[in-house]
Amino acid sequence: MDNNTINIPTMAELAAKDEQPEILFWVGCAGSFDDRYKRVTLAFVKILNAAKISFAVLGPEESCTGDPAKRAGNEFLFQMQAVQNIETLNAYNVKKIVTACPHCFNIIKNEYPALGGNYKVLHHSTYLQELIDQGKIKIQDGGEFKGKKITFHDSCYLGRANDIYEAPRKVLESLDADLVEMKNCKKNGLCCGAGGAQMFKDAEKGNKEINIKRTEEALATGAKVVASACPFCMTMMSDGVKNKEREQDVKVLDLAELVAIGNKL
């Protein structure tokens, strides 16, 4: 496969050629603007390219799903965003959406249908697992994570919110990594502290930051890689690792990055 050809078609470009991609990759705001999460977007695009997946992005036509507004109580703003996004998506006759953000995933999958947006929505962990199962991406010889201790931090909006616990772990298993679980994992997973629009304000008065507590649980496993699958978790866990001055030996990486690195993409 030619790793140097990067192809990122937009829905508008394909529509002009009267083409319909198999999936829409919903990049999300963090994936578009946040410097750290842009690297996850890139990793995922490389995987899609390498696996020769017919996909497109909305590009400049994409807009916030409205999740932080809704969880902060601003239903008006959420629905304004949702209704406009649904208009765009329906205009392109989108059927299947894949996103690397559990918040976008949850809201499009669960809360858009009542507003007229009905799509098959997949989180990238599930999609990556499918690609691996179908043999569309193959991890050669386990790649560089073979035997390495990796712990997975469950995103609340993936796990408890939508009962997705196994897909991300299957992806990690495919790397031949030594998956070690934290004290609180799966349905008992501890939040990173950023959900429910907490990402966008300071925490209330307390005796500890939530992300520090979660980072301590992650570090206690002895894992050198903390795998995450959510832009907010990524920020919170990275900040936590920095706070503990462990950024030299402990990396926080998204599943897509792990797969891309494992595949030498």
Binding site: T10, V27, C29, G31, S32, F33, D34, K38, T41, L42, V57, G59, P60, E62, S63, C64, P68, A69, Q81, M199, F200
Partner: peptide
């Protein structure tokens, strides 16, 4: 169209 103060026109810069 994003929760951060980035111009919407930069959305596809990545």
């Amino acid at each position: 169209q994003a929760p951060w103060a980035f111009p919407a026109t930069d959305r596809f810069k990545w």
